[in-house]
Design a protein around this nucleic acid. Structure first.
Lengths: 122, 122
DNA sequence: TGTCATGTATAGTATTTACTGAACACTCTA
DNA sequence: TAGAGTGTTCAGTAAATACTATACATGACA
């Protein structure tokens, strides 16, 4: 279950440090290198003091590196995955109406809808 | 019915000129003034040669001015309305799954789903 | 024939975004 | 006690974004 980690930075740091308990290669510097950014920047990001949030591609690489759901990590940075954006842009009016109607639907009802759509009841 | 206007610029120009047939106040200059941008910029936008697309707020004001659906105008500029983004960001994983499942659903099935959700069957 | 409104061309600009790079302080350990 | 690895500080920067401002050319029309 995902805990309540209010900010992107604390969330990332928390998960990196959890991974590091079993694997010392999850130091800030090594993760930064594997992700392809400067340690200084990752340090700022993890402390929520970066002058700007990482780009979508960077966040996705970070998510994979830390075994996190990219959609969740992107959301904590206030971003929506570009492939989801594409889905909406193909039929903006239909999806706009649908999303606005689903906005207030409780989680359990939304999950049921997802399940039925997935099962091909649509 | 909305015609096939491939680009944002031609779409906007087409609709402005349609409105102008009945109302001479829909000149490029006057629309630009009411929307709050320079005529030079609107001219570029309508000819698809602007160095950058208008911001979301500007597009929404333009859409209202030209009596167009803001979601459609935004989509033609490759943008998703920020209120829709908010809806997704509240429950990113649920909506990510739902949208990816709905991506290939034919229009008529999607419309049926929208209708049933609206009717409170969910 | 002046002036008014129209659309257009082009250069410039303020702000935001997404980082980099060099240096610094600390700990551990060989 | 030198070296390696750790995280952090902070100034700087390249590119993109969203425009503005000024000037220009054209046609209507009084």
């Amino acid at each position: 279950m995902t805990r309540e980690a209010r900010t992107l930075g604390s969330f990332l740091r928390e998960h990196r440090e959890a991974l590091r308990e079993d694997d010392s290669s999850y130091s800030l510097r090594q993760v930064a290198e594997r992700v392809g950014i400067q340690p200084s920047y990752l340090s700022q990001v993890e402390r929520d003091v970066a002058p700007s949030l990482p780009a979508e591609e960077t966040l996705v690489r970070l998510a994979h590196e830390l075994e996190l759901d990219p959609d969740l990590v992107l959301a904590m940075a206030g971003k929506v995955s570009s492939d989801l954006r594409e889905v909406i842009l193909q039929r903006p009016q239909l999806f706009a109406e649908l999303l606005r109607d689903l906005r207030t639907l409780p989680d359990h009802a939304l999950m049921r809808l997802v399940r039925e759509v997935r099962d091909g009841d649509w």
